[in-house]
């Protein structure tokens, strides 16, 4: 059944991250309908109250819109999704830099390493 959760962090946040991922990768298109609370709860194996909370939080940040009597939909505003992508990327990069600094790498070394890695990946693809 469903997703693996880290039980030390609130599940609704983890579920939110999972859905944000799908939205950012356009696996869920703008304007697409999200599964109903119960459907998603059964699919990922959590309490429906948790899913409601996730939807509520996502609505607060305007990533999804709830239409009364119809369900919850991904926003059609491309700008909002772009911003979301940016926020997540910023957050991840910040965490990454902190992590690298902790193992004693200077910022120059990090960017050097990063460029090399990306280059290697590109070559592997070709």
């Amino acid at each position: 059944m469903g997703l693996k959760f880290d039980h030390n962090r609130p599940i609704y946040i983890q579920l939110m991250e999972y859905l944000y991922g799908q939205i950012c990768r356009s696996e869920m298109k703008p304007g697409e309908k999200l599964p109903s609370v119960r459907e998603l709860a059964v699919k990922v194996g959590v309490n429906p109250n948790t899913v409601s909370r996730t939807y509520m939080e996502m609505e607060r940040t305007h990533i999804v819109v709830t239409k009364r009597g119809q369900g919850t939909f991904v926003t059609e505003d491309a700008k909002t999704i772009q911003e979301l992508r940016k926020t997540i990327a910023d957050q991840q990069i910040d965490d990454f830099i902190v992590m690298m600094n902790q193992v004693g790498l200077s910022n120059e070394e990090i960017s050097q390493l990063m460029l090399e890695k990306l280059k290697k990946r590109r070559e592997e693809k070709e």
Binding site: M1, R38, A41, V42, G45, V46, N47, P48
Partner: peptide, 9 residues
């Protein structure tokens, strides 16, 4: 698992 799913549903 079945039982938990039934409960949630």
């Amino acid at each position: 698992e079945d039982i938990l799913r039934m409960i949630v549903m």
